[in-house]
Design a protein around this nucleic acid. Sequence first.
DNA 1: CGCCAGGGCCTCA
DNA 2: TGAGGCCATGGC
Length: 212
Amino acid sequence: MNKFQNLFDDLFAKHGSQGWWPVTPQSCHNDDPKPIYGLLGKSEKQKLEIIFGAILTQNTSWKNVEKAIIELNKRDLIDIEKILKLRMDELGAVIRSSGYYNQKAKKLKEICTFLKKYPIAKLEKMDLLEVRKLLLAISGIGPETADSILLYALEKPVFVVDTYTRRLLLKEGWIDEKDSYDEIQKLFMDALPDDPQLFNEFHALIVSENKH
DNA sequence: CGCCAGGGCCTCA
DNA sequence: TGAGGCCATGGC
């Protein structure tokens, strides 16, 4: 039992199962009537909503992102073609609450263009590192956003490192300020089995821990 | 009122 | 490659 396993067990005992990524009830209407949380049985639309959410939550509180996602759902815009057809200023207005809306409107269009070429179903069958490289080549998608998409939408076994992860490991004294994203990610992935469900819960628990 | 959220890009050494 | 500026809303 290593210290990362112990950390997970402690957080799990404290906060319980988190069932991430949070998906809005609206996105469940189209393909599946029941609300679904956690790893299994997500619809295409829910996966797309997760991808949009991963971009919208960049340096932004989830509360503000949730409003934007609800607005997108109201207008039936969890849809690749509709996003691409929408004018930039219109899309910006819809996602306004998530902040940086001009940049994020552009990013949503970028990812939709990408998903036309590489549909989600196709990405799911591809190699993890291959997809990661493709995502990182998209302007507006950095390591955390790419890994969030890989883990929560595509269900690939990667560990997501965010500011909360850094803060917690810094507090534990396991990392240094200067340690890179990839170095921190490697610590987790070397210490833990390649289990998407475990990485999913672990990251969600770290966020929960930091909010309390 | 100021601070800062589940980042990432660009610029300039 | 690394530090600093920039993007922007809403909750507290």
